[in-house]
């Protein structure tokens, strides 16, 4: 019987990976912080940043699925660096030393550069180089991805999976980077034509399970996106399912970008970080199509849960307990 360690098993994606692997007959050991619930066969409690914990966690497993990360939007850089970058490097090193056969690192689409609007981006395209402007989370995920790819270059049996905008019951894709209610209207800081690279949590979990099991996936990176949904189409579907009555209003983003630039300069003079950066607005103006052909061809992956069904599950109000 195959055994797998799943880090971040109590998290949104981690829990789906655990359920998926167990459904496939894999015995799952979960690395979780003390006190966190998870549906695995075996628990291993501790901190990702603790090498002793990692060494204990990887001992005797066939696969390591690394879905654990610090995902908050705020906090000191050191914490992102140690949890997301250093722990990834250490986990891979220790897993290789322990003779683990397959390691899947869960990365993010945010690692890719989107050089212009309507760009077509595939796995071998360049990394983003936005640096500090990207925010600590995105920057740390970029460095973690680079660490995983560096391990591949050293011959480690690593696969990198880069999912799109993760969503599912309990986590709705946001309607916009920022939004504000204005009576019957809702101001959405987004471009109506922007393409949301939606990735339903169960579809991503399936891709990860396929990547772990497929011999072809060793040393490969895979983009996982179900659907590129236009922002305006998503907002319309959102209203339809939730019964929301507001009407979407999209501000002229070039003006917003100018505003963000000025804001950023002002805050910089005051020695502080602006609440919204020009880089963030740039990204809402620049959407891309992320090619998933490689996952389809090499893993046989298909987003099995159709997007309309996945969004219905995600957006429908929770049934009231009887």
């Amino acid at each position: 019987m195959t055994t797998a360690l799943v880090t971040g098993a109590a998290g949104f994606l981690g829990a789906a990976i655990v359920a998926r692997l167990r459904g496939d007959g894999v015995r799952v050991r979960a690395l979780v912080r003390p006190g966190r619930a998870c549906g695995a066969d075996e628990r291993c409690e501790g901190d990702l940043c603790d090498d002793a914990v990692l060494a204990r966690a990887v001992a005797g497993v066939d696969w390591v699925i690394h879905a654990g990360a610090r995902v908050s939007t705020t906090g000191p850089w050191d914490e992102f660096e140690s949890t997301n970058v250093r722990a990834t490097r250490e986990l891979i090193r220790l897993a290789v030393a322990a003779g683990v056969g397959r390691i899947v690192h869960v990365s993010s689409l945010s690692v890719y550069a989107v050089p212009r609007n309507n760009a077509v981006v595939s796995e071998d395209d360049a990394y983003d180089d936005g640096g500090d402007e990207r925010g600590s989370y995105a920057r740390s995920k970029l460095l973690a991805d680079q660490a995983a790819m560096a391990a591949i270059a050293q011959g480690a049996p690593v696969t990198v999976v880069r999912p799109g905008l993760l969503y599912g019951p309990g986590r709705r894709p946001s309607l916009a980077r920022k939004s504000a209610a204005l009576g019957p209207f809702r101001l959405l800081l987004a471009s109506p034509g922007y393409l949301l690279p939606l990735a339903y949590v169960d579809n991503v979990a399936e891709a990860i399970a396929l990547a772990a099991a497929s011999p072809r996936a060793v040393g490969r990176a895979y983009t996982i996106v179900d659907v590129h949904a236009r922002q305006a189409d998503y907002a319309r579907y959102y209203r339809r399912i939730t019964g929301a009555t507001w009407r979407a209003v999209y501000p002229p983003l070039r003006l917003v970008r100018l505003g963000a630039t000025l804001l950023e300069r002002g805050f910089r003079l005051a020695g502080r970080r602006a609440p919204i950066t020009r880089h963030q607005v740039e990204r809402t103006l620049r959407s891309a199509t992320f090619v998933t052909r490689r996952a389809q061809d090499e893993l046989g992956w298909q987003p099995r849960v159709p997007v309309t069904e996945a969004l219905r599950r995600t957006l429908a109000p929770a049934p009231t307990p009887a």
């Binding site: 939606l198 996106v225 179900d226 659907v227 590129h228 949904a229 236009r230 189409d233 998503y234 319309r236 579907y237 339809r240 998933t292 298909q302 987003p303 099995r304 159709p306 997007v307 309309t308 969004l311």
Partner: peptide
């Protein structure tokens, strides 16, 4: 192609069949 189908289903509001 689930991607093409899904995007068009959201755009058109029509039911999608896999």
């Amino acid at each position: 192609d689930a991607g093409a189908r899904g995007a068009f289903a959201l755009e058109s509001g029509l039911a999608e069949f896999a």
